[in-house]
Design a binder for these strands. Structure first.
Lengths: 117, 117
DNA sequence: CTGGATCCATTAGGATACTG
DNA sequence: CAGTATCCTAATGGATCCAG
């Protein structure tokens, strides 16, 4: 069992491959139900570097999770949105958000515990 | 908004921080509902390197997601299991598994599409 | 059996400058 | 506006050797 064998077979390993990247979850979240321009994503993800955002978007697009629509205009306009399989990811985002909030609470309690110790 | 500001506030950013690591999701999955020894995890995660597994476990433990129980024996026995907050992660694992399987199907269809093109 | 300590190769993220 | 190209640094994963 090597990486290539596992990718495309184990759902966890495959997910982890797809979700690598410091910004991937946030991008998926922001595009959830919306269509955003490069510019708008950049602002939402401040302080992300422009080049970094481009790379992350290319990766997600390469994995088929997001769509890229180019409108030939001056100035250029490029719109990003979730693909079909990207939309299927919504339940993961929801459960992740719930857990993330619980975890943040857990951290706070833990900090207090440390302070009280 | 910088990294420190966001961590512990945005559930997505926080989750991503916690879930970094090539093996974290798989470890969480294997420990879901079970208690496993270092040795057993190592076999399940083949071909992971011993040192890598140790590091990943320390990271997850540091984030409070897993518990480490040391049984003073010869030979040594160390048992890993999910913590309370780690157990709360179960819904994420479930939705992730569902999506992962869908995504694997998607990849297969896509390969066929390419072949038929 | 578990895992610490090193060292190394690869990758990821980002700063910066430039372009249609 | 939405990139591309380049270079740089930090972080990650892993191989190897050693130890209680």
């Amino acid at each position: 069992m090597d990486t290539k064998t596992t990718f495309g077979k184990c759902p966890y390993f495959t997910s982890q491959k797809v979700l690598t990247g410091k910004w991937s979850l946030l991008i998926m979240h922001y595009l959830d139900g919306k269509t955003l321009r490069f510019n708008e994503l950049e602002k939402l993800l401040t302080p992300i570097a422009q080049a970094t955002l481009t790379k992350q978007l290319r990766i997600l697009e390469g994995h088929g999770l997001i769509k890229r629509k180019i409108c030939n205009q001056i100035p250029p306009r490029v719109e990003y949105s979730l693909s079909d399989i990207g939309n299927e990811f919504k339940p993961v985002l929801n459960s992740l958000e719930l857990w993330g909030d619980k975890y943040i609470e857990y951290i706070k309690k833990n900090e207090n515990a440390v302070l009280n110790a």
